[in-house]
Simulated scan of single mutants.
Amino acid sequence: MRALRSAILFAAVVPMLSGCFLWSKSDKGPQPTPLVAFQQSADLRTVWRNNVGDLEDTLLRPAVSGTSVFAAAQNGNIVRIDNGQESWRIRAPSKLVSGVGSDGKVVVAGSATGQLFAFGADKGDLLWRIPLAGELTSEPLVADGLVVVRVGDNQLLAYDTKDGKRRWVYQRAQAPLSLRTHTGLTRLDDAVLAGFPGGKLVALSAGSGFPRWEASITQPKGSNELERMVDVVGNPAISGESACVASFQGRVGCVVARSGVLQWTRDIPSVSGVSADDRFVYVTDESGAVYALDVRTGASAWKQDKLMYRGVGRPLAIGNQFVAVSDQQGWIHVLDRTDGHFVARTQLDSSGIFAPLVKYADSFVAQTKNGAVFMLSVR
């Protein structure tokens, strides 16, 4: 019954999501906003490109550790890229659906058959594999000798990076419905921050999995399970002393990272999550409008609404000047950090960009649905 409800939910929700918009040539539903012309004032260029393989309908995304980029494909390909050169390429024992996570020593990904694989980052050799009681639903978090994964919508499991032995389990009550989207984990000192259905943000001790605090970013409301679904989406973002998240059909908000005390919330629903720098929290709402909010108060700094219904992903701050966003037609859009106006644009390919953009120093990495991995810089 749960599998049936999830399948029905996915079919019902996908057309509504700005991070998962489906466009067609028919006149039904919102159509992607045509791109507006502008005078490019920044230099957006491709530093290097590598092809890994198709992503299909997975939650795969690139990982950056130091100067290395790790990326995977649905067929099991995993590559390590250093300064644009492929250091190694391996094939996992089975097809992959989530990952990759890496700390520069270990590379971890999850399979469609419910297995977790760990590979050595130096040569790509298989270190261990373990069965899981379900499918991974986010990329693994790898840090300080731990691999933390999300199985299903409400269970976190931690494993030792050396041998795959389980260290702890954190379990919440199952939600009637949940989104299938990128909802990751964030490490903050000796804690792991995780978002959950019901609009909850939780901090767990990395060593034991013991909950330190729980914050409510939004409250479920509505007359049915779909209307009451307010899952936290994306990875929690850290800015100074604040931890910030967004929720589907709910709010964007920040809490004090050490205590979970709520600082502010805004009624901006999202399916792609937030990013943050020292000044702003950046979020794309369900229709595709991009916002910059003051990290201290939540007040609006600017709004860019010229990308509506294009399947715009999570904004990513690049350096001190720019914010990059992608869309599902394969375009990268670069906005000015100060007021959100367009400064550069390029199309990577027509297969679309569904995986979140990943920061690399003052550049960033993008992976298209057909598996092309790009390193891009903007000046």
Rank of each mutant, 00 (worst) to 15 (best):
V365T: 07
K95D: 03
L35F: 12
G152V: 11
V148D: 09
G164Y: 07
L59T: 06
D82L: 08
P131W: 08
R45Q: 13
V169N: 09
L126C: 12
H182M: 08
S272Q: 11
T297Q: 10
D336W: 04
T186V: 01
S259C: 07
P62A: 11
C20K: 02
C254H: 11
V252A: 10
P211D: 08
N320S: 14
A109F: 03
G110Y: 03
K303C: 11
N370H: 02
V13Y: 01
D160R: 13
W264C: 13
L193H: 07
T338A: 15
G273F: 06
W128N: 02
V252K: 11
T161N: 07
Q171K: 14
L60T: 08
V148S: 11
V100Y: 01
W128Y: 14
D294G: 11
S247C: 13
N51I: 08
R45T: 14
A173S: 15
L316F: 04
A112S: 04
S65H: 10
W213G: 05
R345M: 12
I217Y: 09
V106K: 00
R345Y: 01
K105W: 00
D339N: 13
A344H: 01
P211E: 14
V64L: 12
G222F: 14
D153K: 05
F374A: 02
P131Y: 09
E225D: 15
L22I: 12
A173R: 13
Q219F: 14
A355L: 05
S98T: 09
D153W: 11
R187W: 04
G199N: 03
E241P: 13
A92F: 06
R172M: 13
S87M: 06
A12V: 00
A42M: 03
W128K: 02
V312Q: 02
G340S: 03
Y282E: 06
A289R: 13
V230F: 05
Q347W: 02
V373S: 07
G298F: 10
P34W: 03
R187G: 06
R172W: 01
E286Y: 12
Q329E: 12
D27M: 08
Y170C: 00
P15I: 02
F374W: 11
S270C: 09
V106D: 00
T218H: 03
